[in-house]
Design a protein around this nucleic acid. Structure first.
Length: 365
DNA sequence: GTCCGGGAGT
DNA sequence: ACTCCAGGAC
């Protein structure tokens, strides 16, 4: 419920200080269910920043309400109903964390005193023309076949026999959780041939064996080791299955925000957030779709991008945006020398033709 | 910010 | 021959 960013509800940015730790009393419960009941619990977001004026939550609530009137925001909860929860993030390099206020829980006294010093920022507006841009990218993507289309982990199911295809089952998920890029290398087929697609098999297998089977997947040593650890955890805590909540996934070694959201999206079909990888991060910034909270600066980490993107991108797009932009990033909007000349949305892109296009003309200083 | 361990691109 | 890649741990 916390995690459900409901469109067309209030979305107000507030900036504040508070560095801190959320008391466990308001710790959010695992998002076990998608949308129990009504999905229209009004939700606000608060950006936590350094410094700022001292204000109580009540003051903020009042400001939010005032700010919201005449700003096309709807459905604000009453202040006494406010609760907050820490957003799911592991971003360490960002000073800003997103908090959410909902009408579901009440705020404890200690919590209230802990959060002080808020100021309002503008409600977030979706970037202009984002729908056109998205449509343009879709067109380009349908024409060109990017690697992600045949080897993306969303497609992992088609590689596997029926049993292993059950994403929510006990088998293959663990693998592509950890070794997403094992598909193009044929690693998953090799593991399959060796009966190593289940937690118990992996747990009892030799780490060196796994290592050699998944080679030449990137970071194979670490991945083999993580795979063993995860298999053990899954066996002991999840009956050989994988955890079904974002928080629990993040506790697994080798699982960070990108993979955790990917797994929630494709394995559990329970969308908690956008899976932001380097492509989504880069392209979102080039398009001017994201920014550091309260600024126009580029986001510095994928986590910041995810938070920024989630503030305005309609939830229906949260899952498809990843393969869409990944493919676009592999074929056209490449990290180095983006092919703006053949890009259908270059006229809508603030970064078009702004990066070096020729190998010989990259003088380094 | 650095490291990991190779592959791919220039 | 050299640079860059990519997600996560630290």
């Amino acid at each position: 419920m916390f995690l459900c960013v409901v469109r067309n509800t209030a979305l107000v940015g507030i900036q504040t200080i508070s560095s801190a730790k959320m008391p466990s009393s308001v710790k959010q419960e695992p998002p076990s269910e998608k949308n129990p009941g009504g999905s229209s619990v009004p939700e606000l977001r608060v950006f936590v920043r350094k410094k700022r004026v001292k204000k109580t939550l009540e003051v903020i609530a009042k400001e939010v309400k005032e700010e919201s009137s005449g700003r096309n925001l709807v459905g604000l909860p009453d202040i006494e109903d406010f609760a907050y929860s820490k957003d799911i993030t592991r971003s360490q390099s960002t000073h800003a964390k997103t908090l959410r206020l909902t009408g579901e829980k009440s705020l404890s006294q200690s919590t209230q005193t802990e959060i002080k010093g808020f100021s309002l920022s503008d409600p977030l507006q979706p970037p202009s023309n984002w729908e056109k841009v998205l449509e343009g990218i879709r067109k380009m993507r349908s024409a060109e076949d990017a690697p992600v289309d045949s080897m993306g982990c969303e497609k992992a199911g088609s590689f596997l026999p029926a049993k292993e295809r059950r994403f929510a089952g006990t088998d293959s998920v663990i693998l592509f959780v950890l070794i997403e890029d094992l598909l193009p290398t044929g690693a998953i087929q090799r593991l399959l041939q060796n009966g190593l697609l289940a937690a118990d098999a992996i747990d009892s297998a030799n780490e060196e064996t796994i290592k050699s089977l998944i080679y030449p997947v990137g970071f194979y040593t670490r991945k083999a080791s993580n795979l063993k650890k995860v298999a053990k955890i899954c066996l002991s805590k999840y009956d050989g299955d994988i955890p079904s909540s974002l928080e629990e996934l993040l506790l697994l070694p080798g699982i960070g925000p990108k993979m955790a959201h990917l797994v929630m999206n494709v394995a559990w079909e329970n969308v908690q957030g956008i899976c932001v990888d380097t492509h989504v991060h880069r392209i979102s910034n080039r398009l001017g779709w994201v920014s550091r909270p309260g600024t126009k600066q580029k986001t510095r980490t994928p986590e910041e991008t995810r938070e920024s993107l989630q503030l305005w991108l309609p939830k229906e797009e949260w899952v498809p945006i990843n393969p869409l932009l990944v493919g676009f990033g592999q074929t056209i909007c490449t990290p180095l020398r983006p092919r703006c000349a053949i890009c259908a949305v270059s006229d809508l892109c603030p970064s078009a033709f702004k990066e070096a296009a020729s190998p010989s003309s990259t003088p380094k200083k």
